[in-house]
């Protein structure tokens, strides 16, 4: 059977390419989260390959052995009902495989959803990453600086990205540091990453968001903490402050190059509040409700009033 061999060859090629020549981004991790994910991917490729080979082997055997051309004309195939033992094996082995994969899956879920370990007592660096058509805004509340379309990060320190969007759902993704997560307009999501090796990495919005989606990328540069601190000082000394008016202009749909500002937009335009976004899903008191809907109003008409407090957002 030509196709069987063609496909075996194809799988073989895929595997060689995956292992060989140039490493693919996702399988060339530069941080603990991406490494966990790459490990899971390799493990599952291995197990799945076993299943594929088993199915192919059975199919080839059946086709070679039971072709009509290989049998006498008067051979009449028997009537065979199911067999409990055979079918139990067909259920049992997949159940075992799925059970094993479930354990791996649950474990790795909790791993990638928590702050990466192994960095001692280091506090995670919090970065607010917000998207607008078709840009990324990175706010460093601790350092009080903001960049557009590029991200500098220190190595060997956990990173905590707070994601939200001024517009369509986008997805924040730096393949070599770890998997993606959505940024949405009415809630803040958290993505835990870390970089182990200095270097430049590709980052992008992975979720389709309209006309400028293809170019909705950003550059990531990981560097040692000292170098990072230097950069922060430099920005604080040289960059222009980010004003509310300027930020409103940045939000206009379009593409921008890399920009750097002193101060963050968090001070005048806080991210969507609360875990549940601007909504109150029945939890909390009436007071809380008012406060939350208040915030959501401010964010929606993008002109802000002074009535709300934004300390809680900028004090990270």
């Amino acid at each position: 059977m030509k196709i069987k061999w063609a496909m075996l060859a194809a799988i073989f090629t895929i595997v060689t390419v995956l292992t060989g020549c140039e490493p693919l981004a996702v399988l060339n991790p530069k941080g603990p989260q991406a490494e966990t994910q790459a490990d899971v991917i390799w493990l599952s490729i291995g197990i799945m390959l076993f299943i594929v080979v088993a199915v192919f082997a059975i199919l080839i055997y059946m086709l070679v052995k039971f072709r009509a051309s290989k049998q006498s004309d008067d051979y009449e195939p028997p009537h065979i009902e199911g067999n409990v033992i055979v079918e139990s094996i067909c259920v049992g082995i997949p159940v075992l495989i799925v059970a094993f994969l479930s354990i791996v899956s649950v474990q790795s879920n909790y791993e990638v959803e928590s702050s990466p370990e192994g960095y001692g007592e280091k506090e995670p660096l919090v970065v607010y990453a917000s998207s607008s058509n078709w840009k990324w805004h990175f706010s460093y509340p601790e350092q009080n600086i903001e960049t557009v379309n590029y991200l500098y990060i220190p190595t060997d320190r956990p990173l905590e990205f707070k994601l939200y969007s001024y517009g369509p759902i986008t997805s924040f993704w730096i393949p070599q540091l770890g998997g993606q997560k959505y940024a949405m307009s009415d809630m803040v999501t958290t993505l835990h990453l870390a970089a182990d090796a200095p270097g430049e990495y590709m980052g992008r919005n992975a979720n389709f968001s309209g006309k400028g989606f293809a170019e909705n990328t950003f550059n990531v540069k990981a560097m040692p903490q000292a170098e990072f601190d230097e950069w922060v000082d430099e920005v604080n000394n040289t960059a222009d402050p980010l004003t509310e008016k300027e930020f409103d202009q940045l939000l206009e749909p379009g593409h921008l190059g890399q920009l750097t500002f002193k101060g963050t937009h968090l001070t005048f335009l806080p991210p969507p509040s609360a875990e549940n976004g601007g909504h109150n899903h029945g939890s909390g008191s009436a007071d809380k409700h008012t406060e939350m809907s208040g915030n959501s109003d401010n964010e929606s008409d993008s002109g802000h009033s002074d009535s709300h407090s934004d300390e809680e957002h900028s004090d990270h």
């Binding site: 196709i3 069987k4 496909m7 799988i11 996702v26 991406a34 966990t36 994910q37 790459a38 899971v40 991917i41 599952s44 490729i45 799945m48 299943i51 594929v52 199915v55 192919f56 199919l59 086709l63 799925v98 994969l101 791996v104 899956s105 790795s108 879920n109 791993e111 990638v112 997805s171 993704w173 393949p175 770890g178 998997g179 993606q180 997560k181 992975a206 979720n207 389709f208």
Partner: peptide, 30 residues
């Protein structure tokens, strides 16, 4: 039907890979 079996098996097992949610963070939208 015979072509379906091997190709669908490959499609199916990659579905299981996608089902592992931690790894799906890397496959999603790609």
């Amino acid at each position: 039907s015979l072509g379906f079996l091997p190709i669908f098996t490959i499609g199916g097992v990659t579905g299981v890979m996608l089902g592992m949610s931690a790894a799906d963070y890397q496959y999603h939208n790609t």
